[in-house]
Write a protein that binds this DNA or RNA. Sequence first.
DNA 1: CCTTGACCTTCCAGTAAGTGGAACTTCTAT
DNA 2: ATAGAAGTTCCACTTACTGGAAGGTCAAGG
Lengths: 142, 142
Amino acid sequence: MNIGNVSEQSGLPAKTIRYYEDIGLVQPSRHENGYRDFAVQDLHKLAFLGRARSLGFSIKECRTLLSLYEDRERSSADVKAIAQSHLTRVDRKIKELQALSATLRDLVVRCHGDERPDCPIMDDLTRSDFAKTRKHLAGTTL
Amino acid sequence: MNIGNVSEQSGLPAKTIRYYEDIGLVQPSRHENGYRDFAVQDLHKLAFLGRARSLGFSIKECRTLLSLYEDRERSSADVKAIAQSHLTRVDRKIKELQALSATLRDLVVRCHGDERPDCPIMDDLTRSDFAKTRKHLAGTTL
DNA sequence: CCTTGACCTTCCAGTAAGTGGAACTTCTAT
DNA sequence: ATAGAAGTTCCACTTACTGGAAGGTCAAGG
């Protein structure tokens, strides 16, 4: 099966599939002409990866999940542990963002938003008493 | 003022401050020995940036906010617009993560988590009917 | 046979916002 | 004089891809 076909069936961009091969998540064989030749198992793996990624698992976790996926002797406890820690991470992030949202909302509501320069948002940013309490949002890329 | 001093007072790592100079957010002058010499205004700017970043504003937004910060003729409407769109983004992300959390929680709850291999989480990941519905979490790095 | 276009290949660069480390110089205190 | 702290630059690494260039391959139509 060619990459375009696999891309369509798995829902993953061809670029992503090549990338996944690069980092060793799949190992398709090659045709004589150099084209990748994906087996049905590869398609399943890629679909699995797509779903796992869409659930927010990191590539590293996906790697582990994939090895469990292929392990008939796996214990569901191992799978659950990964999902559980991911869930905890997600929930922690939600809390962080909710706190952020509350702060922003308060500032936005209090800003009259007209042509005058005075602005509670700027006042907040200009506060100098935050240096100790400030916490970086751990890797929050929105 | 040396960078260590500024770092301490602003709460930003020295590395970050140098990075901010690299990308043109601050322009400290230099001592004869090559050491950076920060003015009080630079310190204020960096504190401002630290606070803005901690509120989740992107560097690009920080750049704009900084120019508004230095603009006595600014209209608070401009500031509010940036904060508002950021808030919208945060709230959208919260919703995404909440949906994710619900899905994960359901899977985790349903997984017995023992030594046996059968597992609802794996079953979900192995589902093949998601390719169309799957949505990549837009840039969610937790 | 030739061409056109779709599809495939590799490789390089860029994204966001820093962080870590190496190699080196300068300042400060003993 | 020398040790250690603090400063400097530069390069690489992080995440998970994505975009684009330059070029090879394949199927269909004239």
